[in-house]
Design a protein around this nucleic acid. Structure first.
Ligand code: MN
Ligand code: MN
Ligand code: MN
Ligand code: MN
Lengths: 220, 220
DNA sequence: TTTATGATTTAGGGTAGGCTAAAAATAAAA
DNA sequence: TTTTATTTTTAGCCTACCCTAAATCATAAA
């Protein structure tokens, strides 16, 4: 059985995201930027992850995540997202404050803890940011999504995720009245600057710049 | 502001318990036995804790916990016991399985997390083993307790804690039908071997050896 | 095809937290 | 009071994870 330290879990999760779920190769500098550690530290960690066979690492040529690595990364993501659900649904955290705490919680070593937590939360399929929660075998049911700025005039849907989940952006959304789960309809599109006007829950009208709309994923 | 690492928190909590809440001095070997680390490692840690002024440490003569140390230890104990309540009340763990997981959870660094957890649990005053949960200022409201084997014939009370909280003992209690919170009455005492017969919740009659009864604390 | 640039790795060092073996101090026994 | 036994500390070593500075490799430019 492969076991990873907390640091190794964090690196592997970052690598999984950077590789787009295993589709792309990843460079040392990519990981360095994502993890906010120096390239020299990354080289050392990649050697270790390579020895544990969760990545395939060729010196000077970057890495590819392995099937085993994907499985472990998805388990870590599962734990992280379940704790995010707990923090928002049960402890009333707002969705822009949960990331760091969920990261720490997700490293607690106990299989049964995660099973019970999942059950307690009612087996949620998505986290507070709309990202899918893998099941205990690593399977993910992703919903078809489109960027809000690419929707046609008059089309309807439901906000399911955000690309940029920085606290600043999440707070902005809260302020204007948008949220994960909101049902929306595209009321107007300005070709000139790409801005859109949407109706939220058939009630509230919101204007959004192209940049903002391009960070919002909608299930149609 | 003094900040402690997870390891330092664990040592300090152990020292707090060994010193009976600050009443007694503690030796290197005491700590070594409790923490299951070697005396050499303990010496090193005691030096560090001394430098952080959470203990007063004299080489070769052991240590005393300081007022600051007591406060910090009580905060760690508070976190540990709140997580134990969460695991038992919400995630349906049994009381003999929660210690290790609660230990890991209690090291997550977030003040607001503990406040919200406390609120979510309804500000519990006691953990699943009947031990009191300090408030955020370190104040503890302890209930007057007596050992079950020292109760007089015919006296009544409620089981509030166990001295020995080993999984084996806790499972034994579960099996015979005793539990924290149970209302009991002493029906018979055998002078010869110190064994007792108690009535639980006015229903079930249980025979107990002196050893077992001497591990059970009762609020009279 | 040679050179320059940028990416990456290696070398060496720091802190935290363990360990063993040996030395030193204290406490107990003779 | 001297010797012995026990406790505690020191010295030196190890792993994990991070760093800076220097060396090395790959590749883009000349
Ligand atoms: Mn997150
Ligand atoms: Mn998330
Ligand atoms: Mn406990
Ligand atoms: Mn407890």
């Amino acid at each position: 059985m492969i076991t990873l330290t907390s640091a190794e879990e964090n690196y592997l999760k970052a690598i999984y995201h950077l590789s787009d779920g295993g589709k792309k190769g990843v460079s040392t500098n990519d990981v360095s930027a994502e993890m906010k550690t120096k390239p020299a530290s990354v080289s050392d960690m990649l050697r270790k992850l390579g020895e544990k066979d969760v990545i395939e690492y060729r010196k000077y040529y970057g890495l590819h995540i392995t099937e085993e690595g994907k499985k472990l990364a998805l388990q870590t993501i599962r734990k992280h997202r379940l704790w995010e659900v707990f923090l928002v649904e049960k402890l009333k955290f707002s969705w822009d404050e949960v990331n760091e705490v969920a990261d720490e919680l997700s490293h607690v070593k106990s299989k049964v803890l995660i099973q019970r937590l999942d059950e307690y939360l009612g087996f949620p399929k998505f986290d507070p940011h709309g990202d899918p929660i893998p099941d205990e075998y690593g399977d993910v049911r992703a919903r078809p999504r489109q960027l809000l700025n690419e929707l046609d005039l008059g089309s309807t849907g439901q906000i399911v995720a955000v690309k940029d989940s920085s606290p600043a952006f999440l707070r902005y959304l809260d302020k204007v009245g948008a949220y994960i789960g909101a049902r929306i309809k595209v009321m107007d599109k300005t070709e000139f600057d790409g801005s859109v006007e949407i109706l939220v829950d058939n009630k509230k009208s919101i204007f959004m710049s192209k940049d903002v709309a391009g960070n919002i994923l909608v299930m149609v």
